[in-house]
Amino acid sequence: MIGDVPRRADSSQVATQLRVIGALFMRELLTRFGTSRVGFIWLLAEPMFLALMISTMHWASGHGVGNNLPTFLFYAMGYTPFVMFRSIVNRGQNVINANMSLLFHRNITLLDLAIARNLMEAAVCSMIITLFVTVAAVFFDEWPHEPALLFCGLMMSALLAHGLSMLLAALTCFYEPLERFTHPLTYLMMPISATFYMLSMLPSESRDLLLINPLVHVHEMNRWAQFGDRVVPYYSIPYVLCWILGLNLLGMAGLRAARSRITMME
């Protein structure tokens, strides 16, 4: 007598989507870095090179950043998180057009595509930031003041970029020329995001105006998490969380609206 053959339990919808996102993540990773390591090297070299140049200019002029802050680490910790934000927004906006053929698969949604691509960008940039922090700690005795808060700051930057990239990807389906403006606009955000300066250096009027930008709060929080009482931070975590919630809800709603406008071509 043959007993019942054991069967694999049906996977839940959540488990299925997690596997889909994992597969898409590996696909994005191989697509970006599988055939060439030049892209990864440049992703590491760009913030290092810029931080080194700015640090050298300040050193040559005899002007540091004060309070015995390491000049190179100060600028690297400002620019590298901004690189993550810019990279997620710029590459995430094109996620629909770049992966149109994958939407033939029933289990793949626009949200899965956005999460996989943006998660890959965030993971790679986070590795670079971790490398900077580790080198500073081991070789220059610059240990993070609040490592957990620094990690939260990086997560907030990634989630802000994730929500904005989903919203832009959806809007691009309705107005395709929008894609041409995203790259220059993300560069223009750099001077108003406290990437290379602290708010404590500015007058109160300018400070209050810049604090409208949630990225300013994130950068100020990251600096305090790294340097502690050597800096005077200005940030509000609830304010950033409100922006994260709003952008991500708008982004998901936008992707849902864009799905009906996508025409699948054989």
Rank of each mutant, 00 (worst) to 15 (best):
V65D: 05
V138F: 04
A98M: 09
V95R: 05
L18C: 07
S36D: 10
P177E: 09
A98K: 14
I96Q: 06
H162A: 12
V240P: 07
F196H: 04
N222C: 05
A258F: 12
F40V: 09
Y234P: 00
F25T: 07
W42K: 05
V232T: 09
S36I: 01
T263L: 11
G22A: 15
F174D: 02
A225L: 10
P238M: 09
H217G: 01
M155P: 02
L209P: 01
M120L: 04
T195E: 09
G246Q: 12
H219N: 12
G153V: 00
L110N: 05
L29K: 06
Q226D: 01
C152D: 02
S101V: 12
M252E: 03
H219F: 15
F25G: 06
A161G: 07
L215T: 04
M100L: 15
R261D: 11
V89M: 14
L164E: 06
G3L: 10
A45Y: 06
H105P: 04
F74N: 10
N99C: 02
M166T: 03
V231S: 03
L30N: 11
L30R: 14
F104G: 05
R259G: 00
F139Q: 00
R256M: 09
L43N: 10
A122F: 03
L103W: 10
V138C: 00
I262D: 06
T31M: 12
L250V: 00
M26F: 14
S204D: 11
E266M: 12
L255W: 03
E146W: 14
I237H: 04
E266R: 15
Q226S: 09
P70M: 11
Y187G: 07
W42R: 05
G163K: 12
S260R: 15
P81G: 08
R86Y: 13
A169G: 02
V83A: 12
M57I: 14
L199V: 01
N107P: 07
V216K: 12
M198H: 07
S12K: 09
M26S: 13
F74A: 08
A60D: 06
E28H: 11
G3N: 05
S101W: 15
M48F: 15
A98Y: 08
P184H: 03
S11F: 13
M77E: 09
L247K: 05
S204K: 12
Q13M: 10
T186M: 15
R259N: 02
V216Y: 11
G251W: 06
Y175D: 01
L149K: 07
A148H: 10
H219K: 13
M26Y: 12
F151H: 00
G228C: 15
R91G: 14
P203V: 03
M84P: 05
Y197H: 02
H145R: 11
G78D: 07
L103F: 11
P147M: 04
P147N: 06
N213V: 01
F85K: 09
L160G: 06
L24Y: 11
A170E: 08
I115Q: 02
M84F: 12
V5A: 12
L150K: 01
Q13S: 13
Y79N: 05
T56F: 15
T56D: 01
L210Q: 03
M264Q: 04
S36P: 02
H183T: 10
F82K: 09
E205M: 02
R207V: 00
A122N: 00
M120P: 00
E146T: 10
A169V: 02
S165G: 08
I96M: 04
H63E: 05
S165P: 06
P214V: 01
G228Y: 14
H219Y: 07
A136W: 01
R256H: 11
I41V: 15
